[in-house]
Design a protein around this nucleic acid. Structure first.
Lengths: 248, 248
DNA sequence: ACAAAAGTGTTCCTCTTACACCCATGA
DNA sequence: TCATGGGTGTAAGAGGAACACTTTTGT
């Protein structure tokens, strides 16, 4: 009864989704190493080891704050990646050296976060040397980070369908077209603009403001805010879902 | 840079859902201890510590096989419970003693499994001293097992809505009424039988067999099987969802 | 014969779909 | 004045909701 594993290190890796009004992007960082061997596999998801007396969501929030400079962002756990072979010997060495620790095994927990991609955000992240890549253009990441990313995208899609999660990717005041673009980007579909507006307005989930877009070289669009009370709280029953507006 | 936690023990706890044709149940076990102090908090979810060179899904499958005698059951990870305080000092002592290990912290990963509750199953589990309780009747479990259970139920509801997961709870050949009861139990709703049949048959997700129920003291119902190809594979686009048949 | 659940159709009405043009702004 | 995306209505058809009685079996 005692080949029980007690010396695992646990890490978190964050898939930080951003939406710029048109395309869905993910924040990637470069691994810090002098070894030129890793040059073409540098890109990875931001992550960290958990510390003593820290919960996983706390660790993920710490990574998130480090990457974006913001606290209190939307954050949700996806899956755990626990294959004893997920980190090979070289990578384990790198990790132990980099963190100054000794461990036999690293299990990682995926989180995804949603941020509003504006100028402040891109300024901050580029100062850190991080990059926002279009989800569709990411094909290789180190270790099993592609798996973590795909998994997060699947979870995001389900969350978006069944809750008001999508609005975490939009500014407080947004246009109908931004919401439509977001759903089109997340699901890779096309939506009829007229019918979309009809359903959306009659559903009561949007509150009209008296503000308009500014500095666009076309007719400015009206800005709306989300009517949170039109969504249910928890559990089901009188539960409104964004899937009402999407045909998959 | 080195208050990094490296001596966590990782456990899995399984929420094993079963459906008997009418109600949704969960398999609970009693903690093995001589201490009478724990008498009224004995019930818990079946679980185990992970072993070296074992992935978490493997550990969960091991627990599942131990509890039900069956291999290859549907199994899905839900969340991680990582609060350093989730296991108090007494409980940590009990765990270390029971498993013959030393550790400072136990992080647990929730899994849920779906089983078909038939006579063989209940015979097996009652021989083990485990009990199948109605989901609605479970109010207290040890440690944070209630949280793990609630979380699993929420994930189950989402899965059932967006996939063919529900059929894992039914026998290969089932009646329309069993499927209806299942959806009613999982979501706590009522469904109009005539309209349900109409939608179901026209959707093409059921294949009619030429078998009937036996030994029921009313008109025997026809048995159907699931037409798996009517559901999409992965991702979205031409994706059929059970939510088509449910109004929340 | 009785009890218990299976199985079956129709009507009304709502909601979905498909589709094309004018409008307001910045350059 | 031109280019760009914002914003609007209607008609035809499909699909959803509500609703009650007959059938088949075991006891």
């Amino acid at each position: 009864m005692s080949n029980v594993q007690t010396n695992s290190a646990i890490s978190v890796d964050c898939v930080i989704f951003g939406f710029d009004g048109t395309a869905l992007k993910v924040l990637l960082v470069r691994r810090k190493t002098a070894d030129p061997l890793y040059h073409d596999s540098w890109l990875k998801l931001p992550g960290a080891m958990i510390r003593e007396n820290e919960t996983l969501p706390e660790a993920a929030a710490r990574v998130l704050e480090g990457s974006t400079g913001l606290k209190g962002l939307y954050l949700k756990q996806t899956s755990i990646f626990s294959d004893p072979e997920r980190v090979n010997a070289d990578e384990l060495n790198w990790i132990c050296e980099y963190h100054g620790i000794h461990t036999d095994r690293v299990v990682t927990v995926g989180y995804y976060a949603l941020v509003k991609l504006d100028r402040n955000m891109t300024d901050y992240t580029s100062r850190q040397g991080a990059v926002w890549m279009n989800v569709d253009d990411i094909h290789h990441l180190i270790m099993d980070h592609m798996d973590i990313l795909s998994d997060a995208l699947t979870v995001l899609q389900k969350e978006v369908l069944l809750s008001s999660t999508a609005f975490q990717l939009l500014p407080k005041k947004f246009t109908v077209r931004q919401l439509q673009n977001l759903l089109e980007a997340v699901f890779g579909i096309e939506i009829d603009n007229r019918n979309f507006r009809k359903k959306l307005f009659s559903s009561g989930i949007l509150i009209e403001t008296d503000e308009m877009e500014r500095n666009v070289n076309h007719k400015p669009a009206r800005l709306y805010t989300l009517n949170k009370s039109a969504f249910g709280k928890k559990g089901y029953g009188n539960f409104r879902m964004l899937s009402e507006f999407v045909n998959l």
